[in-house]
Amino acid sequence: MFRSALSAIFRALPAEAAQAHCDGPCGVYDPSSARVAAEAVLSMTKKIKAIEAPAAGDAAALAAYNNTFSRYVAIKEEEATKAKKELMILWTDYFKPDHLATFPDLHDTFWKAAKLCSACKVNIDQGKAEELMAAVEKIHGMFWQSKGRNDAWVTAS
């Protein structure tokens, strides 16, 4: 009786929050988010390379060209940023120091993959975009192996 009255008082008093959870959505991680973004980077890189410049003096065609080119570049930038963010979440939140025993090159793999995201943003470089896809595929393998699974690598395109 006394104890429950005391508990009721404590529950009625204002309390500050003390967080006791994970930064991520409680263990829901999947490298497919990074894969989709990396695929978009590769796709946009190819599209940028494929668009043809208009003939000189055609103002309307030049405007359309500039518009399309800008949009493609903007999407490439956005998706490369997204890929980097998704990789960072896997690297810093999902993977734990214990995983280094199984994957001694874990840090190097993520570091290089993050650098490739930057290289894909800065340049129009299909080779780098393909390297990024290969790095994400490697991370996909590590991730599922760490969970004792062997999920197949699939791409959308």
């Binding site: 404590f10 204002p14 309390a15 500050e16 003390a18 967080q19 006791a20 959870h21 994970c22 409680c26």
Partner: peptide
């Protein structure tokens, strides 16, 4: 003493 309320499952 300060009063805190736990938010989450980690503990």
């Amino acid at each position: 003493r300060r009063l805190f309320q736990v938010e989450g499952d980690s503990m």
